[in-house]
């Protein structure tokens, strides 16, 4: 529960949502887009964020699609994660999603909320990074679609008042061989010590990571090293680790040294599995 008195809106259209955002903004009401809302409520109760008005996007039909449109899978930002898992149109996304929080929480957590959250794991982004998906966003200047590589750098680089409507993923990617592994400090509960998702595209492996750095990422440099078939597996992994694009996390989930140890093993496991397929 939030201590402050806030306003709540549930617009039915994209246009209404963005207009509302800017009019609330004009009144100095600190609007935020609200999807599953779990993070807004949990950070808000600790006074770590102070939203003044919530714009719930769950009534916007474009945010709720999950279907193939010709050659693209459209995945709406307001879909609950369990909905995505149950429909299972995108097995890699299902697999990665199932590692997030817990089943009941994922009935509420939405794709868009996980992608845009402050809690920096944002694991649901990994499949889209791997598949070079295209992100459709709405904002003051209407709706636009951008390759994820352009708009995602550690976080989604959204301008004020923008929100994600849906993500398009080419059909050819969704059935590719994949691995999604989440390793935790202990057993099967908790934030990632390390989450790695990987797919095999035309004999090349792609990797995306969460829990390794304080942001999720896909690194072409690491992929280049990991795909150097001429080198021994340990050497490929070792070289890839040299290209980690940021500080390796060192926190209560695990030390950076241990994370690197687990990373090494995990990359080995994944490569052996995917190259064997």
């Amino acid at each position: 529960m939030l201590s402050a008195d806030i306003e709540y809106y549930r617009p039915a259209t994209i246009k209404a949502a963005t207009e509302l955002f800017f009019s609330l903004k004009g009144e100095n009401k600190r609007p935020v887009y609200y999807s599953g809302g779990t993070e807004i409520l949990t950070l808000g109760r600790l006074d770590l964020i102070q939203p003044g008005a919530l714009i719930d996007i769950k009534a916007i039909k474009e945010c709720l699609v999950f279907e193939f449109d010709r050659n693209n899978l459209l995945t709406g930002a307001a879909l609950p994660l369990t909905y995505i898992e149950d429909a299972n149109l995108f097995p890699l996304l299902s697999a990665t999603s199932m590692g997030i929080a817990d089943h009941t929480a994922r009935n509420k957590i939405t794709l868009g909320g996980n992608l845009c959250g402050q809690i920096f794991y944002r694991e649901a982004v990994l499949p889209f990074l791997l598949c070079d998906s295209v992100v459709t966003i709405a904002g003051q200047n209407g709706v636009e679609s951008l390759p994820i590589g352009q708009i995602f750098n550690q976080t989604f680089q959204l301008a004020e008042g923008q929100f994600i409507i849906q993500i398009m993923t080419e059909r050819r990617y969704v059935d590719l061989p994949f691995v999604s592994i989440k390793k935790r400090q202990q057993w099967e509960t908790g934030y990632p010590l390390l989450t790695v998702a990987a797919i095999k595209v035309e004999n090349q492996l792609r990797f995306a990571f969460s829990g390794l750095c304080p942001f999720p990422f896909r690194s072409k440099e690491m992929e280049d090293e990991l795909n150097k078939a001429g080198l021994s597996l340990p050497e490929r992994v070792k070289r890839a680790i040299g290209h980690i694009p940021g500080p390796v996390l060192h926190d209560v989930e695990g030390s950076s040294e241990y994370r690197l140890f687990v990373l090494e093993n995990t990359l080995n496991e994944i490569i052996i599995e995917l190259e064997g397929r």
Binding site: Y8, G37, L41, D56, K58, T104, A105, N107, K108
Partner: peptide, 13 residues
Amino acid sequence: HTVYKSCIMLAVE
């Protein structure tokens, strides 16, 4: 038909 944690859901929802 869905189970939710009612502490992370607004009543208005």
